[in-house]
Amino acid sequence: MYLRRKILSRMSDAWMLITLAMIILLPLIIGVALYFRASGLLQNTGLIHLLGTSEWLPHEKKFGFVPFIFSSLYVTTLAFAFSAPISFFAAIYLTQFSHGRMLKIMQPVIDILAGIPSVVYGVWGILVIVPFVSKVVAPAFHFTTSGYSILAGGMVLAVMCIPYMLNMLVESFLTVPQGLKEASFSLGATAWESVKHAVIRKSFPGIISSFGLGMAKAFGETLAVMMVVGNMVKLSLNPLEAGYPLPALIANNFGEMMSIPMYDSALMFAAFLLFIIIMAINLIFRYFIYKTQMR
């Protein structure tokens, strides 16, 4: 009897260890595999050339990734700039100022928004955001565009990120104990002072990690962005011009044009870049969290 229990216990230990190892190893395996698939291009062209030039002419074996990296970063930054303040203040209002009933109503709404497939957001972007950009935003700046642009991508992405970040922010603000707020109020602080010094400060790591995860998600989002961003290899600071983010490059071309030498390898390299950049975003935000927790 005892032996059986002991064996069972050992087995469950081993099982948990294996699953844990799988979770840890998986990203590593993906990274290594992508690197090896991309190594053909790396040996042929060299890393500096790939990351330092902006010419994309696969037929001539010219693979400059700068426009793609730039587009990705641009779209993500715009999306972040639109969505972070909105979700931040919405979360503060929902958890600190509104009636408790409001939060109960909003929570399923947020969940539904977060659960809408990205293709739906893409279609909505084509129907609403793209015309909005071409007919309202662009004329205001005396510019003509089809509307399929970095800006449209950023706006669609922002709308997609809001429920995602809002959810995490609400969670982290709700963990601030009521007693802490009461302590601040009882010292004569106003509602905003209490929110600023007690709630926001206490949930700082939570805020940073919501922003970080939101950004990483935005960076990797493929379909909806691809549908509205124009998909043209360009390098322009003007957000009304079209762009071509990394995920769109992979999704648009994978499985096609494989007759071109090195193309397959170039797409793998794009995936590898995406992987590395998202990992870097995560690590940077981890570091911020670590720093803020140390204070």
Partner: peptide, 20 residues
């Protein structure tokens, strides 16, 4: 209410130091 609450100091069941 700010002035009023400052007439009283609250000490709760558990200490709630601010994150400073």
């Amino acid at each position: 209410t700010s002035v009023l609450r400052q007439k009283m100091g609250l000490l709760s069941q558990r200490p709630y130091p601010l994150p400073y």
